[in-house]
Nucleic acid binder design. Sequence first.
DNA 1: GCTTTAAAAAGTAACGT
DNA 2: ACGTTACTTTGTAAAGC
Lengths: 204, 186
Amino acid sequence: RLRKWQERIRTKDAGERNLQFALSEIDRMASALGVPRSVREVASVIYRRALNEDLIRGRSIEGVATSALYAACRQEGIPRSLDEVAEVSRVPQKEIGRTYRYISQELGLELKPVDPKQFVPRFASALGLSEEVQAKATEIIDVSAEQGLLSGKSPTGFAAAAIYAASLLCNEKKTQREVADVAQVTEVTIRNRYQEQIEAMGFR
Amino acid sequence: MSAPADSIEIQNVVASTGIGQELDLEALADDLPGADFNPDNFPGLVYRTQDPKAAALIFRSGKIVCTGAKSIDDVHEALGIIFDKLRGLSIPVDEDPEITVQNIVSSADLGHNLNLNALAIGLGLEDVEYEPEQFPGLVYRMDEPEVVILLFGSGKIVITGGKQTDDAETAVEEIVKRIDNLGLLD
DNA sequence: GCTTTAAAAAGTAACGT
DNA sequence: ACGTTACTTTGTAAAGC
């Protein structure tokens, strides 16, 4: 009756407010990450799909919104690392990763593993490196991945090492620390990947 | 020729049982040397056996979980030790409590490096979870037998979720077939 | 969902020296 | 630049929040 109707309206209003909140959060995080409007739209679509499929029950709105944005970046070919996404979200990285795996599975997103090459332009320009270095880093990634060195390795660490190696080869040297900072990996990881990659390239 | 199935090693067996008798865990914690009991953290009392090495979680209801054993025989041996310890404390324990194996974790070596990127696509993205930013292993859920396999670039694998001794062997033979059919066994 | 227990795989990280 | 320790993932039961 009246009470039931009021509750429906209240629920509908609450749902509407939650959706608006999620979409505004996606917008805020997307701006902070500097991703184009198209990615925000893809993220919104993923979030609405998750909402329609009732995937938010038992999860935080912000967690699903962040994961939707992370997924959208990957789908559009301009991935952000979980670290980078977690920096602009109020949700812990671990929860973002777990929620991403869940919605990705449930919505059948079937996203391919992140390609380290997709980080090269962004990391290289943040370091002020030339197109030549970017091309070299891309080549190093292709060659070492073909030789099976990529399996199990973090895409950001793999890209960081290739950029470090390329900066040396092109006489535009950046320190391991500088590269590590923009890629958000440790110098140890860059060192380890770098050693394998220069060997794969036939350098030594 | 060493078949991958021959490299299978059981690493951990989880089993549950019960003594058919309620327990006073506070008293048991005092009477069992080496027992860990922190009811604020967890309702179970933790008791470790040395030979065979295993850990038991003992609950107020008398139900017991045994984990860490390297074989099903070790599970029975470790629980036998615990049953006798309890009887030694004048606690009545059922004659021959039923022991149910809940999970067997095994490792194996396929003997070839694996291209996990190609494998993720080949095995089917819908059945695979491969997020190297979060974990270096590819997670593959197999329906028959119903187990989960973790595959690594080195070709080493982990099989978990099985309840029968031969689940791991069946799973290894099956995954080798599937990988080979994809032409991804180098 | 979480809490605890065990074990493997390999990568990454954070300590201390 | 080492070495050590510890965390990530999978599965599983138990009692209770």
